[in-house]
Design a protein around this nucleic acid. Sequence first.
RNA 1: GCGUCAUUGGUGAAGUGGUUAACACGCCAGAUUGUGGCUCUGGUAUGCAUCGGUUCGAUUCCGAUAUGGCGCCCCA
Length: 422
Amino acid sequence: MNIIQRPKGTNDVYDAYGRKVLYIRNLIEKIANNYNYNYFRTPTFERTEVFKRGVGDTTDIVEKETYDFIDRGNRNMTLRPEGTAAVVRSIIENKLYVNGMNKVWYFMPMFRYERPQSGRLREHFQFGFEAFGSNSPLIDAEIISIAVNILKNLGLKGVKVNINTLGDTESRNNYRNELKKYFESHLNELCDDCKERFNRNPLRIIDCKYDANLDIIKNAPKITDYLNDTSKEYFDNVKKYLDCLNIEYEVNPKIVRGLDYYTHTVFEITATIKDFGSQNVICGGGRYNNLVSSLGGPDYPSVGFGMGIERLINALEKEELIPCDKQIDAYVCYISENEKKCAFEILNYLRENNIKSDMCYSNRNLKGQFKEADYNNSKYIIIIGEEEEETNIFTIKNNSTKNEYKINKKDIINFLKENKYE
RNA sequence: GCGUCAUUGGUGAAGUGGUUAACACGCCAGAUUGUGGCUCUGGUAUGCAUCGGUUCGAUUCCGAUAUGGCGCCCCA
């Protein structure tokens, strides 16, 4: 075993990939500001119970995918497998529910003990948006529109929202009982997984990919037939508001989501991406009106979504939609060792004036320094020799046109700023 | 967790049961001067994921382990 090898299913982030992560993060931050959502962060690990009770201990995530450990104080801890339950815990502990509404976004690593694949890691980053404290279908539409907006801003085509409702508690229980009744007599026709689901979470049988073609699944009762009036009206309003935001969606009664806390609206977003394998769902979310109270807080309805960064970057790379070139404004070169100090001073002067710049710190000749300038993709090269140091008039070379200019020291900043996009 | 395929330098890779592991890119040095990118010359893996086994001899064959890809389950 090689200690230099990173743990299974984890990633080192550097160079181009790092720039891609920051590019997405910056965009999210901007959009979060526009929608007035506040930055949120929770600890990387929580007491295991937070996720067991929050996410639901019949879900696969908690049943077989959590990263659990016992700390030195003998406490059961779990590395955060998803954001929502952790944020909810924090909302309750800090009594943020007194604020009425809390609109928050996060960007945090998540951990799931799984067999890795591309777009599926043991440590992956997810960002998400959560809106607490409103029962209005407006906010469901807002949350969905944020997700759609982000994907469209990134340039993805064919962004498609698949939406469904699970109804309120009453509707959901009615439906659940009806499903149990329905499947009871057909139990032996189902796959082994579904037999297990029958006891724990019969809704998930509907979503089974293995049994999807069986007539019993196709003819199974539909949630839409078991919604009470308030649930039906709620769903209609969500759709109405999506229409008024011009968001394209498709109602898909099969979406039930793998997390137990959802009520009413659930949705998944896909996009058209070349050669994308089984990980084409890049965003998932929904409403979870009972989660805050089930973790010991007050009645505090909420809705939110999560998106996986690595999967998103995969998609953008396949569609060639993500910039990753590096660039600086100026690279300072010196002809001989004598001018090194002068170069360092000029460099500092540039940086104090918000010019993105650098110089060579090892003892390379001019040729080597030019190479460094190219490596850093510098727009300009400033050359300092004996003459420049004496006269304070510097040679500035545009690295794409190769034109050279003689510029007085006090005019350098203006020159670089004005000619930045030349 | 199941199935399946893979793993050769910084990167892309060729290749073989037996002397120095091809080629290309990249990188470094020099020709090269106060101006590079072109060209030329030279240098760049005591090493073929790891550990065992078979063998006179293994990077090549076999096994285990590790990691990665794809499919399934599930999910972001």
